[in-house]
């Protein structure tokens, strides 16, 4: 099993609903976030293009954050989901420094927090909160090892990219372009 997510930049409107929903679902304190929206504008008026992307932890196959964690708090869980066990985390911040995507933040309670792909929801057969709320339905989630999963299907059908592939982390968050 290999969980992955795809975000359709052609449909995302950058509304940040994914951010608000993640914050409430996961009790992320106000002022912090596990996901965020990036807008890239290209060109000059009136020859313009914008790309909107909802970003979060890439649940990399080859995660520097897991590798550099001195306590083992950062670890791979089922389906390749990268997690932090709060009570094993000493808050040293090595993982924050090692992540090329800036996907982690120091939780005010003294541990490092990040996107969990809403593993608590997945276990109940639900989709991650951001995927479930997105008004444009531009996010797809599922198991890449299952060729029939939503995410496998859409990646087959559509052109896509990952962010900073040259970092060699093998990110599992795909952007449909």
């Amino acid at each position: 099993m290999r969980y992955a997510m795809a975000v359709d930049t052609k449909k995302c409107v950058g509304c940040s609903d994914c951010v608000v929903a993640c914050q409430t679902e996961n009790h992320v304190p106000i002022g912090y976030c596990r996901d965020w929206v990036v807008e890239v504008t290209d060109g000059t008026y009136p020859q313009l293009e914008i790309e909107l992307r909802s970003e979060r932890c890439n649940h990399c196959n080859n995660s520097p954050c897991v590798r550099c964690c001195p306590t083992g708090a950062s670890h791979y869980s089922e389906g390749g989901i990268v997690l932090v066990t709060p009570n094993e985390c000493i808050g040293c911040g090595a993982c924050i420094a090692s992540c090329p995507y800036d996907a982690r933040y120091p939780h005010p309670d003294g541990y490092v927090d990040k996107c969990t792909f809403c593993i608590h929801r997945i276990k109940k057969g639900l989709k991650p909160a951001c995927v479930a709320v997105c008004p444009t339905r531009c996010m797809y989630f599922g198991d890449l090892d299952d060729p029939k999963s939503e995410v496998s299907e859409v990646l087959k059908r559509r052109k896509h990219k990952t962010l900073i592939p040259e970092a060699g982390t093998s990110p599992q968050l795909y952007f449909l372009i």
Partner: peptide, 13 residues
Amino acid sequence: CNGRFCPRGTGGV
């Protein structure tokens, strides 16, 4: 809404 609130509705709390 088809089961999906917008950010303002989600942030209604």
